[in-house]
Simulated assay, not measured.
Amino acid sequence: MRAVVVERPGGPEVLVIAERPDPVPGPGEVVVRTGAVGVNFKDVYEREGRTAAVAPFVPGCEGAGTVVAAGPGVSAPAVGDRVAWWASPGSYAELVTVRADAAVPVPDDVTDADAASVLLQGLTAHYLVTSTWPARKGATALVHAAAGGVGRHLSRLLADSGVRVIGTVSSAEKAGTAAAAGVTEVVVREHGDFAARVRELTDGRGVDVVFDSIGRDTFEAGLGVLARRGTFVLVGAASGPAPALDPQSLAARGSVFLTRPTLVDHATEPEELRARAAEVFDWLREGRIRLSVSNTYPLAEAARAHADLQSGRTTGKLLLRPS
């Protein structure tokens, strides 16, 4: 099979296409022929050496396709079933080994591309607004990168729940995308101090919650716009890891809360994963979640996909097509 391989940590140029042996499913596993593969910042962190992945390795974790082989003890999914996954290492390949209990059934009315586009980002938005900070009518939220994949889903779900959403974007070109996703006030970060603008928009009170997927560049200022007993949710680190913080400083900021949740702790148990995924697919049908694919690349152009993702110019999901 063909796969994308990281021979050493580095920039997008270290992603190269190579022939690898076809995988054989072990106990509790299935092998899936991939129809579409999601490209995520997690893959960038792997490529750069910021995770435990040891080169050489095949990056990627999210995709959708058709089961072609099942290992011992697997009764479901069966050969021929369509499934999606969000946490299977080595997904930048024509064939991927997936734990059977981590394979989500894909409804007939959802394509492989749609499933690979929505699963990881949709599940992330789902647990953020239902578990981490249950959305409540009348509250005010600040969503960074509101035109990005998770940001758009998150903004729309919050707005649908009656939350006022203030969203930041990296450039004026992305303002319309954020507004279409339910953001009430769009703040362009390149135009100046976003924190001052947020305080102005909230008459100095601050926001009830901050969802920050940027990290280093927005962390300190974001903590400063929380209302008393507000919640800061660190979702990611697109600009780099957030700086170290003395927990005592949270008291001085108004007894605020700081959390760094992950999808691993919200969608690992098979029952919880399938329940959340089923609701995400329902939201997709209902229009509460809307898909936007910025670009689709051949497997051999994974390096270009990573470069585009890190450029900050994309507003929708990026996909790889193995065939």
Rank of each mutant, 00 (worst) to 15 (best):
E7L: 13
G11H: 03
E13M: 00
V14E: 13
A18E: 13
P25H: 03
R33T: 05
G35F: 02
D43Q: 01
V44A: 07
G49Y: 07
R50S: 13
T51W: 03
T51E: 09
A53E: 13
F57H: 08
G60D: 12
C61G: 09
E62Y: 01
A69Q: 12
A69E: 14
G73F: 04
G73A: 12
G73Y: 03
S75C: 10
P77E: 12
P77I: 13
V79T: 08
L95G: 12
V98N: 06
D101Y: 00
V110N: 12
A113S: 14
D114P: 00
A115K: 12
G122N: 14
L123M: 15
L128W: 02
K137I: 07
L142I: 03
A147V: 03
V150D: 08
R152H: 07
S155A: 15
G162C: 07
V169S: 11
S170R: 04
K174T: 03
G176W: 00
A179G: 13
E190N: 10
V198T: 14
L201K: 04
V210T: 14
S213H: 05
L223I: 00
G224E: 12
L226A: 04
R229D: 15
R229F: 14
P247S: 07
P247W: 02
S249M: 08
A252K: 00
V264Y: 10
D265C: 03
P270L: 11
R274G: 11
R276N: 14
W283G: 05
G287V: 03
L299F: 06
A302R: 04
S311D: 13
S311W: 03
G312I: 09
G312Y: 02
L318D: 14
